[in-house]
Every structure is written in structure tokens, then in C-alpha cells.
Amino acid sequence: MLERMRAYFDHQAELRELALEASRRTIRASAKAIAAIHRGDQRAADEFIAEAREGLNSLAKLVADAPELADSGVVLSAQQEYGEAEIVRAAIMEKKLAEIEEIGIPYKPYLAALADATGELRRHVLDLIRANEIERAEAMLKLMETIFEFLMEFDYADAVLPGMRRRQDMVRQVLERTRGDLTLALRQQRLERALEKRGG
């Protein structure tokens, strides 16, 4: 009996180590994908997202052997980071909101990824403002508002949906700051146009 039990736990420990490595690989590739998206390098972004997807596929195989890993932080973190990369890519490069069926991750990490993606979308809005692409910045802000409205539909206790209320508050703050930055940029743009008309 002792040997059987030790063999079982040895196998569990081995699976966990493999899961950690696959999770780290997914998270690293997802972060690199987001950086490539901000650079406007779609080819690199697609390659890194494909690499992240391979990491998730490896995790899925491990979870099949050890179902208890499915709700572990190791797996959920990888799913969340991958989901964030997919959401940011769709928002910035395709001007749309990536739906859960397209990404292929469970509900909880999808919602967490949506919330975290707003920080990356704010960064993109600020880049657009600096480039004086105000109309594109406005369109991105509208997409951020859509994400916020969607997230606010999930009013559940932490026992059901851990961290959601905190994430909702975070997204609200990001949205308010971004709206303020864009409002200032619009005022500046109108002032510059008015001065140009007077000068003309």
C-alpha cells in the first residue's frame, strides 16, 4: 500500500511540475504577444499567440490526467494571460471584442482576461492620443466601455466568482482616467482647429 501511495503522489508531483512549465511558457508567450501588438507587429503577435496556445494545449493534456489541476492557479493564470493576449489582439488589430468561443477558455479566466485587457487598451488609447489619432482613440474607448458594461452584468460573491468586484472597480477607474485623458485631447484638438481657422 505504501508503495502504491508514494507512486501516486510522485506522479502527481511530476504532473504539477510539467503543468508549471507549460503555464510559464504560456504566460511568457502571451506577454510577448501583447508587446508585439503594441509595436504593431502582427506577424510576431500571431506567432507568440500560437506558442501560447501550444502551452495551453499541453496543460489541457495534463489536466486530463490530473483533473484536480483544472481549477488550480497554475492553469487559470495561463488561461487568463492567453485570453488577455487574444482580447488585446482582436481589439487593437481587428477592432472587435473577442468572444469566449473564439478563445476557447473557461468563463472565469475569460472574465478576468477581459478586465485585465482594459489596462492594455488604455495604453493603446494613450498611444493614439500622442499620435493625434483622436477618432481611433474614441473608438477604442467605446470598446472599453462595452467591456465594462459586460463585466458589470456579473454581480456575484467572491465564493462564486473570485475577485470580480475588485476587477470591476479597477476597470471603472481605468475607464474614468482614459475618458478624462481623451476629453482633454479633444478639447486641445478643437482649440487647435479654432486657432487654425482664425489664422487662415
Score class of each variant (00 low, 15 high):
Met1Asp: 11
Arg6His: 15
Asp10Gly: 13
His11Asn: 15
Glu14Thr: 12
Leu15Pro: 06
Glu17Ala: 03
Glu17Met: 13
Ala19Lys: 01
Arg24Ile: 02
Arg25Tyr: 10
Thr26Gln: 03
Arg28Trp: 10
Ala35Gly: 08
Gly40Gln: 13
Gly40Phe: 07
Asp41Val: 09
Asp41Trp: 04
Asp41Cys: 10
Arg43Pro: 00
Ala44Phe: 06
Glu47Gln: 15
Ala50Trp: 11
Arg53Lys: 15
Arg53Trp: 02
Ser58Trp: 02
Ser58Glu: 11
Ser72His: 00
Leu76Asp: 04
Ser77Ile: 00
Ser77Gly: 06
Gln80Asn: 09
Glu81Leu: 03
Ala85Phe: 03
Ile87Thr: 02
Arg89Asp: 00
Ala91His: 08
Ile92Ser: 02
Met93Gln: 03
Lys96Gln: 12
Glu101Met: 07
Ile105Ser: 06
Ile105Glu: 04
Ile105Trp: 03
Tyr110His: 06
Ala112Glu: 04
Leu114Ala: 04
Asp116Gly: 06
Asp116Arg: 03
Gly119Phe: 04
Arg123Tyr: 01
Arg123Pro: 07
Ile129Ser: 01
Ile129Gly: 00
Ala131Trp: 06
Glu133Cys: 00
Ala139Pro: 05
Met140Tyr: 03
Lys142Cys: 10
Leu143Ile: 08
Leu143Met: 15
Glu145Ser: 11
Thr146Ile: 12
Glu149Gln: 14
Glu149Phe: 11
Glu149Trp: 07
Met152Gln: 09
Ala157Trp: 06
Gly163Asn: 10
Arg165Tyr: 09
Leu175Arg: 11
Leu182Gly: 04
Thr183Tyr: 09
Gln188Tyr: 08
Leu191Val: 09
Ala194Lys: 14
Gly200Trp: 15
